[in-house]
C-alpha cells in the first residue's frame, strides 16, 4: 500500500529536535536534583560534582540546539494573524469531544507557535542566567537575579514540556511520525495545514 506523503520536517530538523528534547529533559531532571537537593538524582551521576558537570555541559548543548531551531520555526511562529486569535478562542478544538472546525492553519498551528515562542524566550533566559551562575560566580546581585530568572524559566519548562509531549503523542495520534521520519500523509496534511498547502500550491 503506498500512501501519498508529504515531507514536513527535514532530517536536520528531526535530529536537532531530539538533541533538544533529550538535553532539555536531562536538564529538567538534574534541575530537580539541585532545587530539592535530591540525593537519589545525584546518585545517578556518581558524585555531586559530576552532576553539576553534566548539567552545565548539557546546558551548552541545549543552547546550541535551541539556536538551531531559530531557522526552523521562528518565521512561522511570528506570523500571527486573526486566524490565530480565533484558534485560541476555540481552544484549538481541544476542549470538546465533538469535532470543532478551527480556522485554517499554516505549517504549525497557533498552539505550536506559542509553545515555540515560550520555549525560545524561556530558553534564552535560562541559558543566559545559567551561564552567568556558572561563569561569573561571586557577583552577588547578578547571581541573585540570574538565580531568579533561571528558576522562573524552570517553572515554565516543567509545565510546557509535559504538555508538549502529551500533545505530540497521545493527544494527536499520528503526529509523532513527523519527528521520526518527517512525513505526513497527504490527505491529513490537506486537512491540518490548508494555508501551508496553498503556499506549496497543492
Amino acid at each position: 500500500m503506498s500512501e501519498k506523503t508529504l515531507v514536513k520536517a527535514t532530517t536536520a530538523e528531526i535530529i536537532n529536535h531530539w538533541i533538544l528534547a533529550v538535553s532539555c529533559i536531562l536538564l529538567i531532571i538534574t534541575g530537580y536534583g539541585f532545587v530539592f537537593k535530591m540525593e537519589g538524582i545525584y546518585a545517578l551521576f556518581g558524585s555531586n560534582t559530576t552532576m553539576k558537570w553534566v548539567h552545565n555541559w548539557t546546558g551548552v548543548i541545549f543552547t546550541f540546539s535551541l539556536a538551531g531551531t531559530l531557522f526552523n520555526y521562528l518565521g512561522e511562529a511570528l506570523d500571527l494573524s486573526r486566524d490565530d486569535w480565533n484558534w485560541i478562542k476555540l481552544g484549538g478544538g481541544y476542549l470538546s469531544k465533538k469535532h470543532v472546525q478551527v480556522p485554517p492553519m499554516g505549517k504549525i498551528n497557533t498552539g505550536q507557535k506559542l509553545y515555540y515562542l515560550a520555549i525560545l524566550a524561556g530558553g534564552f533566559g535560562i541559558a543566559v542566567s545559567g551561564l552567568a551562575i556558572w561563569l561569573l560566580p561571586g557577583m552577588r546581585t547578578l547571581i541573585q537575579v540570574s538565580h531568579l530568572v533561571h528558576n522562573l524559566a524552570f517553572v515554565l519548562f516543567v509545565v510546557a514540556v509535559p504538555a508538549h509531549i502529551y500533545l505530540g503523542t497521545l493527544a494527536n495520534p499520528g503526529l509523532l511520525r513527523i519527528m521520526i521520519d518527517g512525513t505526513v500523509p497527504l490527505e491529513v496534511a490537506k486537512k491540518r495545514y490548508p494555508k501551508w498547502m496553498k503556499e506549496l500550491g497543492i
Binding site: G93, N172, P173
Partner: peptide, 29 residues
C-alpha cells in the same frame, strides 16, 4: 518558585491525563 515547580509539573501531567480520559485525542487520521 520551589513549590510552583512541583505543582506545575504535577498539574501539567494530571491535566494531560484528565484531558485524555475526559475529552480524548484528536482523530484527524
Amino acid at each position: 518558585l520551589k513549590p510552583l515547580s512541583v505543582i506545575g509539573l504535577g498539574g501539567a501531567v494530571a491535566g494531560a491525563l484528565l484531558h485524555y480520559a475526559v475529552i480524548g485525542p484528536h482523530k484527524d487520521d
